[in-house]
Each structure stands twice: as C-alpha cells, then as structure tokens.
Amino acid sequence: MGLMLPQHKYILDILTRAGMLSCKPVDTPISTSKATILPNPLFSDATRFRQIVGALQYLTFTRPDICSAVNRVCQFMHAPTDSHWAAVKRILRYLRGTTSHGLHITCSSSFALHGFTDADWAGSVEDRKSTGGYLVFFGQTPISWKFGKQRTIAHSSTEAEYKALADGTAEVIWLPYLLTDLQIPSASAPIIWCDNLGATYLSANPIFHSRTKHVEVDYHFVRDRVTKKEIQIRFISSQDQLADVFTKPLPTSSFTAFLFKLRVDPPPSA
C-alpha cells in the first residue's frame, strides 16, 4: 500500500540521450575507489556533460539515493574532465539497473519529524572543504534532503558535523511551521540524529571553547533552538546513520540496506 513516485520514463529518456540504454547495470551510483587528483584531460563535449547532469538533477526529486552522486558531478559543470564523465556514466549505469525504482510513500502511524545529519571532514580532494547534508523523515517517509559542499573550511570533523547540524536544524524548524499551516497537530519536538559526539555536546553546551571559538555565530542558532526545546539532538552510531549514504561512497551491501531505509523501492510485483 501507499504511493509510488517513479520517474521510469524520464530515466529511460536520459539513458537514450546519453546513448547508454544498453549499458551494463551496477549496484551503486558511486565507485568506492579513491578519487585521484591526477591532472585529467578536459572532457571533449562539455555541453553534453552539462545536459546530462542537468537532467539528472530533476531525478533527485524522487531519488534520494542518487542525490550525493549527482551533487558530486554537479560541482564540475564549468570544466568537466574525463574522470567526471566516467562518474556520470557510473550513475547512468546504476540507473539502468533501477529504472523503475521510485520513492515509496507509505502510510505512517506517527506524524513525528526526525532528521539525520552527517558530514565528511575535508572530503573534497580539490579544496579540502567538507561536504555535509541532512535527511528529514515525516513518520516513515523521507520528505526533505539536501547534500552539498560547505561554504567554509572546517578545522575539525566536529565543526563540519556542527555545520551540517545547523543546516538540518533550519529544515526541521521550518517543517513544523508548515505542519501548523496544514493544520496537522505536530507531535513532540523533532529529533535530529547526529553521529558525532563532539557536535552533539556542542549543541548542548558551550564546551571545547578554545577549539570552536572560530565557529561562526550563525551556526550557534542550533544551541539556541535546543535551549528553547524546539528540537532535540541525539547521538547515533555511524552504522545506523541514514545520512551516511549522502556523505560517502558505500559498498554494495550497505548501500542496498540504505536503499530500503530511504524508501526507494522497486515497483510492487504484480
């Protein structure tokens, strides 16, 4: 039961445009092998790269599973290289195997909001900026997600996680306002799960002052909201961290498990 939101035809159209309709499917959208920083020749057809990647962005509406992979290639729209094109082809091969998957909106018994935030510290090989993101669930359905490179460089993994937490907080603060407008009684304060102990401590208490005094003030609105009891922040182990799928390339086994939790399902068999 529930509602499936697949973009089956759209995926096939993209694959046709890219001439990848008969490619060999793979299980994950990102290769787990380390990215190289070797100088790479520029991709010969940048326009084609931009067209395909631009089309893929519209697919992230129903496919949180490719959100991070698409974001990674989007960062090189201005000057794509051959290895970036290889990454795009990897996403297309993954889509070839999952054309009829879609976001599955199921009946939830609870109307509670909970979010996951995660970041990888200095994950970008080009400029050592961190990437982070959040994933917000309403009951059992993921409704909002974002993943992207952070604008400033983080001194520590805690700082990177704390920034991701700030982004996630902004989102879970906004959603209850929306629920109020929709006249849906909201349950208890939204919970955000974060897998960095330092960041969870920091949200409750201004400790580690010497190492975090440079953290910009606007990020500290997290602490403000926690004090006002508008949100709760709890620690979660990295294995159960759902936003993990956004920040790092995962091997097939754990990726498939995430796919199930992200509610990206194949169509129900007839």
Partner: peptide
Amino acid sequence: KQATVRLVFSIAVSCGWKI
C-alpha cells in the same frame, strides 16, 4: 518546495485522502 509536495503526499497517504 519539493519537501512540501512530499509532506502533503505523505499526509494524504496516511489519512487515506484523495489526490
């Protein structure tokens, strides 16, 4: 906003409303 669409869908499915 995309989140609004998915949120409203989710409410509709949970409450059995028509779309």
